[in-house]
Design a protein around this nucleic acid. Structure first.
Lengths: 182, 182
DNA sequence: TTCTCCATGTAAGTAGTTACATGATTGG
DNA sequence: CCAATCATGTAACTACTTACATGGAGAA
């Protein structure tokens, strides 16, 4: 339960979860998000820093000053209450509809307005985009292997999910376009 | 090119594209969106009606009063300029990054904070959600078949894409969880 | 008569981003 | 010495949703 009427929203739990995974500063969180969940959830600095303050106010994280030389820095760890709050959120059973918002698919949906050549061009752009995404995800793979070695299993799972569904997109597009898969 | 300094944004093109596909009124657009692109792009009434006005002002659609009995109604069709503007947008080559924003995957990413049973529960919730989505998409299939019969090929393609990537999710989750695929 | 659908519209609020401001440190 | 990176933060803006307001028509 969260006290004091401070309602936490998904971005707050993202920050909390990242602190739990070892991100110490706001800057660390930014970087960790960039090479993990940014593929299905983005978060900007303008959210991270206020969120850390909120989380500290309700004692879900504990922050302390940890300057590097003359460069200021605040480090955070998760508290036992923070762990509990994160678990409560993860198991809360709230609806979590799959929400996709993709101009690419919208354009593809309307592509009958184009002549054959342009429609095919659009199809190929969609395929290319998914190929690039697969490549980007594969670049993260070494990091996932390190997680696995440390007994952390779910980040690598989400990585596999990302790769799998972009491959599915490529396959369907290839079949539709009569082109080779690559 | 759009004249008069009215910059059109994706929701406007969605409205334009839907008018082109035969949606006549704002209400028609709402319904058509609901059983087609809502799976990768949502749009609310508060956007549709102002958007139709904007599009009419720059002559990309033409609207006229078409009351049903005493019930008011405005019908729209796309103009030649509207067709051209839609094609220009579809072929514009602007970046169209694949943007996914999914709390479900975020939770799965953090699931190592849970014990085995809860983590498995979350995994199953993700799978269930994709199964439901596949079912919802399959329910639309008859509509897609009618499109196909009329030579409209791309809406059915996006439908297949949706089904394919949710099946991919189900498969990966099933393998990870050691469960049956269903 | 009352519920659901048809139909159009707006006001107010929410969630988020972009752009900026500041300054220290490291590497080429 | 200059660029990139480390590090924190805010003001202003944008996009979008929710909730509401209004009212006609058909069906149970």
């Amino acid at each position: 339960m969260t006290e004091k009427g401070v309602r936490l929203r998904p971005p707050d739990y993202v920050v909390l979860g990242m602190v739990r995974l070892g991100a110490q500063s706001g800057y660390d969180i930014k970087k960790l998000v960039h090479d993990s969940i940014r593929f299905f959830w983005t978060i900007s600095e303008a959210q991270i820093y206020p969120s850390l303050k909120r989380l500290e106010r309700v004692a879900l994280v504990r922050g302390r000053s940890a300057p590097q030389g003359r460069r200021r820095r605040r480090n955070f760890d998760i508290t036992p209450q923070g762990e509990a709050a994160l678990r409560a959120w993860l198991t809360s059973g709230e609806a979590m509809p799959f929400e996709l918002r993709d101009i690419g698919l919208v354009k593809l949906f309307f592509a009958d307005a184009l002549d054959r050549a342009d429609a095919l061009g659009l199809l190929q752009a969609i395929m290319e985009r998914s190929r690039e995404r697969v490549a980007a995800l594969n670049r993260i793979e070494p990091k996932a292997r390190r997680y696995k070695a440390a007994g952390i299993r779910h980040p690598p799972l989400t990585l596999r999910l990302g790769i799998a569904f972009h491959k599915a997109i490529i396959d369907v597009c290839a079949e539709f376009g009569g082109a080779k898969k690559r």
